[in-house]
């Protein structure tokens, strides 16, 4: 970025940087507030910190940068680089969120699941918020309703209690689903738990349990669901490609747009929105699996319309 385009506030920070001690910090906070008022004049420096400089992280970072007004100063950096001084930070992924969590700057976390946000143990505020990576329970259940209108009992495998599980429990009651829960741990091996679960469930809903759904376990899980003729509802397009019936998720692009909106709003009001779920989402359907299981499923576009209508 040419020097001439560098926003004023960044230079200011650069100036005060050597200042240390209590006085220094107070100055910093003061200048930050000043900075915000400067930002209202559409000059905001944003540092987008990626947990990993590849894949969805990078896609989101670049998409977000491109979505922000061109007069903003936006840097996309990896964890390995030194964190630059900026008016606000966007942490992409848990690693970045964790490393930034103690910083006294406005921070917006993205690609962070609800449970991950809780784990950061920093209460949300006007300057600290998150766009959750997971889909709201209501939306997931609406997908099941739309894709499998006859399904009444949902099977889930979990390893530890999580906020996602709690909300799913509550929402299932509201939406009149029976939730069959099986805990998987050393006493309850996966194979047995899955077998029991599939006996009584119409659909297996995947929870973000990285101890259960792994690259080395997915094969047997999917084969077992197929054998039991119980479709799986996954967490991402990758699940669907592997053999899940369908999945609802938000793409990095959709999350980037929502983050850009929050940041622009922040530039004006000085406030980040409360932690929230994604607004936009995608649905993927594996038609071959549907056909083979004899499930007459609507196409992804129709499902999306229906899920949206049910929200």
């Amino acid at each position: 970025m040419p020097i001439s385009q560098q926003p004023f506030i960044s230079n200011l920070f650069a100036f005060v940087r050597p200042v240390t001690g209590l006085f220094g910090k107070a100055t910093l906070v003061l200048l930050m507030v000043l900075g915000i008022s400067q930002a209202q004049a559409s000059h905001l420096s944003v540092a987008i910190v990626l947990s990993e400089s590849q894949g969805a992280y990078q896609e989101l970072g670049i998409e977000l940068k491109n979505s922000l007004p061109s007069e903003y100063s936006v840097q996309v950096i990896g964890m390995e680089s030194e964190i630059p001084v900026a008016d606000m930070y966007v942490a992409v992924g848990m690693k970045a969120a964790e490393s930034l969590a103690n910083r006294n700057h406005p921070i917006l976390n993205v690609l962070v699941p609800h449970a991950g946000f809780e784990k950061l143990q920093r209460p949300p505020s006007a300057t600290y918020s998150t766009i959750f990576m997971d889909q709201p329970a209501q939306r997931q259940l609406a997908l099941i309703n739309a894709a499998l209108p006859n399904a009444t009992s949902i099977g889930i495998l979990y390893d530890s209690s999580s906020v996602e599980l709690d909300t799913l429990r509550k929402q299932s009651k509201v939406m009149m689903f029976d939730l069959n829960e099986h805990k998987v741990d050393q006493q309850h091996p996966l194979a047995g738990a899955l077998f029991d679960l599939l006996q009584v469930s119409d659909v297996l809903l995947v929870l973000p349990e990285s101890n259960i759904y792994r690259a080395d376990t997915i094969r047997n899980i999917l084969l077992e669901t197929y054998r039991a003729k119980v479709p799986m509802v996954g967490l991402s397009a990758s699940y669907v490609r592997a053999g899940a019936l369908c999945a609802i998720y938000s793409t990095p692009k959709q999350i980037a747009y929502q983050a850009a909106e929050a940041i622009e709003n922040f530039a004006i009001t000085g406030k980040l929105p409360v932690p929230q779920h994604t607004k936009e989402f995608e649905i993927s359907v594996n038609n071959q699996v549907a056909r083979s299981l004899g499930i007459p499923i609507k196409d992804a576009v129709q499902l999306r319309v229906e899920v949206r209508r049910r929200q």
Binding site: G93, L111, G116, M133, D134, D185, S210
Partner: peptide, 18 residues
Amino acid sequence: AEEVVSEQSYLQEFPVVL
């Protein structure tokens, strides 16, 4: 049995099983 909370569950790539 280690507890990991991360976005990996959403981002991991799987090969085609079915």
